[in-house]
Amino acid sequence: MKRFSAIIMRDLRLAFRAGGGTWPSLVFFALIILDFALAIGPDIRLLSRIGAPLLWGSALFGVLVSIDRIFQADLEDGSLEILIATSEFLALTVLAKAIAHWLSVGLPLTLAAGALGLLVGLEGAAFGPLVVSLAIGTPALSLVAVLGAAVTASLKRAGVLASLLVAPFYTPVVIFGAQIANSGPGSGDTSLPALLILAAFTLFMLIIVPIAAAFALRFGQN
C-alpha cells in the first residue's frame, strides 16, 4: 500500500512540475476548443448548442497527447525496469500509474471543461451533466491510455501509434459521455441509463486494463 501511494505521489509530482504531462494536455484541450470556435464562427448560440459534445471530443484529444508520457520517461531513466522487476503484483503498479494519470490529466481536464464551458456559452443547467459525465468517463479514458502506453512501451516514438490503437476503444465512452452531457434538464430525456452504462464500462476497464497492461509490460521487456 505504501508502495502504491508512493508511485502515485511520485507520478503526480512529476506531472504537475515543469515538463510534466498536465499542462500540455490542458493547453492542447483549450487550443482545440479555440480552433473549433474559429472554424465554426462566433455564433454563440450555435456554439452553445454543440458545446458539450465539443468539449467531450476535445477532452479526448487532451488525453491522447498525454499517452506517450505515461511510461516513456520511466523507460528512459530505467525506473520502468525496476518497477517491473520489483513488483509483486505488476497489475497493482499499473493501477497506481492509471490513478496517477487520471489525477494529473483526467481530473484537470474535467475541471477545465467546466471553465471552458463559459467560452462556448454553455447554459447554466448544462454544466452539471458535463462535469459529471467527464468525471465518470475520464477514468476509462485514462485506463485505456495506460493500456496503449504499456503495449507500445518498448517502442521508440510510439505516440501516434498509441493514439491509433487507443482511439477505437474510446467510442463507447464518447457516445455515452456526450449523451449524458447533452441531456440537460431542458432536453427532457433522462440520462440515467447512459450514466450507468458509462460507469459499467469504466469499471470493466478498471478490471481488465491493469491485468492486460501488466502482461504487455512484461512481454515488452525482452
Binding site: V151, S154, P168, F169, I208, A212, A216, F219, G220
Partner: peptide, 11 residues
C-alpha cells in the same frame, strides 16, 4: 505476436 494478441483480445 504477444503484444498484438493482447490488443486483439481486448479489441
Amino acid at each position: 505476436a504477444k503484444l498484438c494478441a493482447i490488443m486483439c483480445i481486448i479489441g
